[in-house]
Design a protein around this nucleic acid. Structure first.
Lengths: 131, 131
DNA sequence: CCGGATCCTATATGATACTG
DNA sequence: CAGTATCATATAGGATCCGG
C-alpha cells in the first residue's frame, strides 16, 4: 500500500510520484513549477543567455530565474556554460534529458493553451451557478 | 514582442502561456501545481470519493484537496457529483477535457519517474562539484 | 552581464477543531 | 463523510543594492 496507485498497469516502477517520500515528486515540482515550466519551454529551441531568458519568461525576477536554473541544472535538465570573459557570458541549454522532459511539458502546455476557451467558458458557468 | 515566443512555428494561438497576463498561465498552474497534478493523475482510472482521493494523493491535507478540487472543477477539468444522502457521498471524476489534459500530464510524470536515476546521478555530480 | 546577499510581503500549506 | 473555519508557519516570490 503506502499510497501508491495499485493494480491497473502498475509497471512496478521504482519511483512513484504519488508516494509522499518519492524524490520524483521534487523533480516534478521543479519541472512543472511556475518558473521551471516556462524556463524549460523557453529553452526548447536552443540555448539562451540569462537576460534573454528573463525577457522570454515574462515576469520572472532575477532571483527566481537564478534559483530555477540552479534547480534544473542540479537535476541534470539544463546545462550551464559560463565563459570567463568580461563582461561574463553564460549560456543555458537543455540537456538530452531536459529535451525529453520538455517535449512532454510542451505537449501539456499546448494542450492547455488550445483548450482555454473551454476552460474560460467552464469558469463562467461555475461562477454563475454560485451567484 | 511582449514576451511571446516569436518565429519558430508560432501558430498564432490566441493564448500564450509565456505572456504574463495570459489566463492559460493560471490554468497551467492549477494543472501542474503540487496537488493539482497528483489529483488529476489519481482520477485517471475513474471516479473517486473525497477520502479515497485523500488516501491516493499521499500527504495532501483536507484543506488543500478541497481547494484543489474546486479550482479544477471551476476550470472544467473535474466534475463533482454530490448525492444528497446522509452521510453525504461525493464523487469526483475527470471531464472529457480533464482527460485530455491528464493524458499529457501523465506522459510527463511517467517520463520523469522513468528518468529519476539519471536525475539523482546528476544531482550527486552537481553537489560533488561544489564541495 | 551575471548573478549573490538581503529584506520584506504574499501566498501556499499544515494542524486542529467544528458542522450538516 | 465531506467538507468549512481558524490559526500558525513555511516557503515562494519580489525589490533592491552590490560585487566580480
Amino acid at each position: 500500500m503506502s499510497g501508491t496507485q495499485e493494480g491497473i498497469e502498475a509497471q512496478d516502477l521504482p519511483y512513484d510520484v504519488f508516494a509522499k517520500a518519492c524524490p520524483s515528486r521534487g523533480t516534478l515540482e521543479h519541472v512543472t513549477g511556475r518558473w521551471g515550466a516556462l524556463t524549460m519551454g523557453a529553452l526548447r529551441d536552443g540555448s539562451l543567455r540569462f537576460n534573454e531568458l528573463r525577457r522570454r519568461v515574462d515576469g520572472v525576477s532575477e532571483k527566481m530565474l537564478s534559483q530555477t536554473l540552479q534547480a534544473l541544472e542540479r537535476d541534470g535538465l539544463v546545462h550551464r556554460e559560463a565563459q570567463p570573459t568580461n563582461p561574463p557570458r553564460v549560456d543555458y541549454e537543455l540537456t538530452a534529458l531536459g529535451h525529453e522532459v520538455t517535449e512532454r511539458l510542451l505537449a501539456l502546455i499546448h494542450c492547455v493553451e488550445g483548450r482555454m476557451d473551454d476552460v474560460l467558458a467552464a469558469r463562467e458557468r461555475y461562477d454563475a451557478r454560485r451567484d
